[in-house]
Each structure stands twice: as C-alpha cells, then as structure tokens.
Design a protein around this nucleic acid. Sequence first.
DNA 1: ATACCGACCTGTCAGC
DNA 2: TGCTGACAGGTCGGTA
Length: 269
Amino acid sequence: MPELPEVETIANGLNKRVAGDAIESVWVGSKPEPLKSSASEIARALEGSRIDRVQRVGKHIVFSLTGKDSQPSEFIVHLGMTGRMLVASPDAEVPPHTHLTAQLRSEKELRFVDPRRFGRLEVRQTKFAGPGTEPTNISVEAFAELFHRSKAPIKAALLNLKFLHGVGNIYADESLIRAGVRPRRRANTLTSAELKKLHTAVQKVLQEAIRAGGSSISDYVDADGEKGFFQFRHRAYGREGKPCLKCKTPIKKIVVGGRGTHYCPKCQK
DNA sequence: ATACCGACCTGTCAGC
DNA sequence: TGCTGACAGGTCGGTA
C-alpha cells in the first residue's frame, strides 16, 4: 500500500505531531507477526524514551529516540501493504488489527494498525540506512549505473529494493509511462537517453506525489487521517481500458514480475 | 549470480 | 443472499 510519497507524508505528519513528546507506556499485541524485534524488546526501548524526530528512510518510518538511559535508538516501522500509524486520542475507539499502542505524555496515543500484517516493527541501536539507494536524490549517472547491467524487465528492476528503495508498484508504472518506456523492456536494453528520461520521470513523479500528499487508494490515510490526492494524477495505474491521456489509446494491464502493470501500448516503446 | 514465483495475511469486490 | 476466486500499494526465501 504505502510507497515512498505516502510514507514521507505520514512520517512528516508524525514528526509534526509527536516530535518532542515522550512515550510513557506501550502495549504490544500478542500476534508476533508484525514484529522483527520481540515485543519485550520493543516495549523496553520505547517506554520512557523521548521522540526526537520522525523521518522516512526508503519505505520505512524511522523514529529517533533518546532512551531513559540517554542512549539513542531507533524505532523502525514498515507499513507493509495495509499498515497505518495513527495519532489518536486515547478514548477514541481502538480499531481492529491494532498491534501496538504507545501512550504519550501529551495524552495522545500512537497506534499501529495493520489488517494484513505485512508490516514490520523493529528497534535498533545502530543507524538504519535501508536496503538500497534513495530514489529521490540519486544522480542520473548513478541511476544509469544501477540499471544498465540488469536483464530483468525494467519494471521489476525499478521495484527491486537492492537498487532503489521506495519506488513501489504505482510509481513504477507512473514513471514508465512518463518516460515512454514499456514495462517489459529488459533494463539493459534501455538507451542512455531512455535511462535519463526515466531518471527524470521517477524524480518528478515522486516529488509531485509528495506534494499532493500521496495517492489514496482504498483506505490509505496519513497520520492525521487525511487522504492524499495524487491518485487523480495517475496516468497509468488503475486506468485499465481508459484512454491514454496523451494519445487516447486504451491503457493495457499485464503482469510483470508478479505485479499488476499498466501502460500505454502506443506511447511506451 | 540472477530472475522468477509462491508464500505470507486479511479484506473487498466481481461474478455466478 | 451467499459462496468462490481473484486481486490488492510489499518483501522474503526457495528454486531454476
């Protein structure tokens, strides 16, 4: 569900609302699935610590903490497909599939809700860097270097975390239609001109989406419960059978790398 | 080494 | 109305 722009929107919203606050107590649900660290480890790291700031790294939300022992640590949240990290009033009804709640000194409550349980929670003492390169500020040279040897379809390569972390299914499709490149093209067959166009497209799509507050598909909302607006600017994703905004050719939907993939058969070569 | 594919979960929606 | 199957924004591990 959430890709880079959504996670960025959520992380910024959380930063505004809980940075400087302190965590007084933590409840972690009994189902172990969403945890990478153990429940007791998470509770121990969070309880009594101060939230210094919240930021995005890849598709992860990173809470920088100072513990009651004054030691720094990080609380890493991955939202998976359906995860939400909400700031709620403690007397607001606790939604189903809530796996963690953290009571804050300000009387607010931080809640992690994830029906599908693909999300992950982790605490660590070392700095979290993410698995790949940030797509938002990679140079065109580094971008080309990343892809020019891969034989995977370019769509699959864009989704590969070891290359770029943060480009998900929606923004891969949106980048490819803007760059005019077919999703099934092997990455190593892209010309340097195409790689350059794709690099520009990825950056623009992500920037625009961040400015719009992300894409709201079904139930995505940010930390304030607000929906994003980028879905109204999608040119490919979710537009199967609808006319291409440029040439009116119906958008096609296929499967690439096991993921639903949308493209314009005329504009994308 | 690389690329592909199923598995992990639950909810929703289309079709019968 | 109710059942079944396909599909969903992500990632990992096994297999070819």
